[in-house]
């Protein structure tokens, strides 16, 4: 029988109650607490991920990260929930109400600082949406067929925005 250089091993039917010492060296010590990453770094990373990845995944990793997502309006300056931006399988399968809520939640969090929006939106919601965007909004890209938007809504909008 050959003996390995690893000193600790289980033999035959012997039971070893405590984990062998070799195990502890195999598992890397959890030295760094990524949940405690400074919030400005988390924000920087989240800005690179974009709103959908943050809402669906990243902010659910731990509470300190979610706090950043909730408390940093700058994260929601650009809100785009257009399926063409995502190849995410879950996005394709998600129901309309979910998508609708996504931008509502995102705009709530933007606290009036949203500068660019892209996504689908009902006529009824359009003014509501525009009202919640920043007065300095540069881009409002809607997926809805423009002909479905009522004339009154259009005239109200035109004073404020250029639809792209």
């Amino acid at each position: 029988m050959s003996t390995s250089s690893v000193s600790s091993c289980r033999e035959g039917g012997r039971t070893v109650p405590a984990p062998p010492p070799a195990m502890t060296t195999l598992v890397a010590p959890a030295a760094r607490d990524w949940a405690a990453l400074p919030s400005d770094i988390v924000l920087d990373v989240f800005l690179r991920l974009g709103p959908l990845d943050v809402l669906l995944d990243a902010e659910l990793a731990c509470k300190p990260w979610r706090r950043v997502a909730l408390e940093e309006p700058t994260l929601w300056r650009r809100v785009g929930f257009d399926k063409r931006d995502y190849s995410d399988e879950r996005w394709r399968r998600s129901c309309h109400d979910f998508k609708e809520n996504m931008w509502q939640v995102a705009l709530d969090r933007a606290k009036g600082q949203c500068e660019a929006f892209k996504g689908s939106c009902h006529d009824d919601d359009l003014l509501h949406l525009v009202g919640r965007c920043s007065p300095s909004s540069r881009s409002l890209r809607l997926i809805s067929d423009i002909s479905l938007i009522g004339m009154r809504t259009c005239s109200n909008l035109s004073a404020k925005l250029v639809l792209t």
């Binding site: 990373v45 991920l49 990845d53 995944d57 990243a58 659910l60 990793a61 731990c62 509470k63």
Partner: peptide, 23 residues
């Protein structure tokens, strides 16, 4: 860091970054 998170589920992100689920 963002590349390490991209497209991962909350569970997978916790695994990559060794984060304890505090929810």
């Amino acid at each position: 860091i963002s590349e390490m998170m991209k497209g991962k589920s909350p569970d997978q992100i916790r695994e990559v970054f060794n984060i304890k689920n505090d929810y």
